[in-house]
Simulated assay, not measured.
Amino acid sequence: MNYKNELYPNDLSFVLKSAEDLAVRIVEKLNDDSCKKVKELYNEIDGRIKRNKEIFNELGYVPNTFLKTNSLSMKNNEFKGLYIFGEEIDDKIIPVYVGISRSVFRRLKQHAWGKKHNECTLAYLKTKYQFESEGKQFYRIISTEEDMLPAKLLIRNFKVVLVNIENDYELYFLEVALAGIFKTKWNSFKTH
């Protein structure tokens, strides 16, 4: 047990086996016709991107965590867990990125419609990779939203699966384990 009285798993082999089983279910979900693309989960209303609560609820992605809605109140309005982006390659949806967040609804929106490099980090990474593979210099301070738009459009077309994970140890472990199992192209675990 750590200083916050959080328990460590008794059997790490069981945790890894659970990750392997979860990986199989995620690939099945990504390849199911009912799996939605990121852009299908949000609507543009009056120039703003809003979560389509009805679709999220139909998929079983209901809020499971509390976030402040203003300085005075807390509301059960977010989803804590994993999100896995899948891209169609050779007529199959292949996992290409595993992410975790205490606010998955907001995080998905940031990836696909964010304006700053630290919001749409995957789009930023993909843009940087594209620039560098073309032999161009890439500077964060001069990269623009326009530079990242092609990557954000691609992310909007990724299929996505969400997995509710409440336990922080399990959440962090699964991000790394699933990225390793899937050998995702866009995950990196370099520290800041």
Rank of each mutant, 00 (worst) to 15 (best):
A151G: 08
E145M: 02
K136F: 14
L149T: 05
L162G: 00
L108H: 13
N164Q: 08
N157T: 02
K152Y: 07
N167F: 05
H111A: 01
H111K: 02
M148K: 14
A123F: 09
V104W: 08
N157G: 02
F158S: 01
D147S: 13
T144E: 09
A112N: 03
C120Q: 07
I155P: 02
E145G: 03
V163A: 05
K126H: 04
M148H: 05
T144Y: 14
I142R: 15
T121R: 15
L149D: 08
F131W: 09
I155N: 04
F158Q: 01
I100V: 11
L108F: 06
E134T: 00
R156N: 07
G135L: 12
K136I: 03
N157M: 11
W113S: 09
E119C: 10
V160W: 14
D147F: 12
K159M: 04
T144R: 10
H111Q: 11
L122M: 15
A123N: 05
L122I: 14
G99M: 12
F105C: 01
V163E: 15
N118D: 13
T144F: 10
I142A: 10
Y129H: 05
E119H: 15
L162V: 00
Q137K: 12
V161K: 11
Y129D: 04
K152W: 08
G99S: 13
L154P: 00
A123W: 09
Q110T: 00
L154W: 04
L153P: 00
F105D: 01
F138T: 05
A112R: 06
K152M: 14
M148T: 06
K126N: 05
R107S: 04
P150A: 10
K128I: 04
E119T: 06
K115I: 09
G114K: 11
V160N: 10
I142M: 14
M148N: 09
G135Q: 07
Y129A: 07
S143R: 04
R156G: 08
L154Y: 09
Y129E: 07
E132L: 12
Q137W: 08
L162W: 06
L153C: 04
L149Q: 12
T144H: 14
R140W: 11
W113D: 06
E145N: 09
V160E: 06
L162H: 03
L125C: 01
N157A: 03
E146K: 15
P150F: 12
V104R: 08
V163D: 05
N167G: 02
L122N: 07
I155G: 02
W113P: 01
G114H: 14
V163T: 13
K136N: 03
L149P: 00
K136G: 02
F131T: 03
I141M: 14
Y124C: 10
E166Y: 15
C120V: 03
E132A: 03
N167Q: 14
E134N: 14
F158A: 02
V160F: 13
L162N: 02
P150N: 13
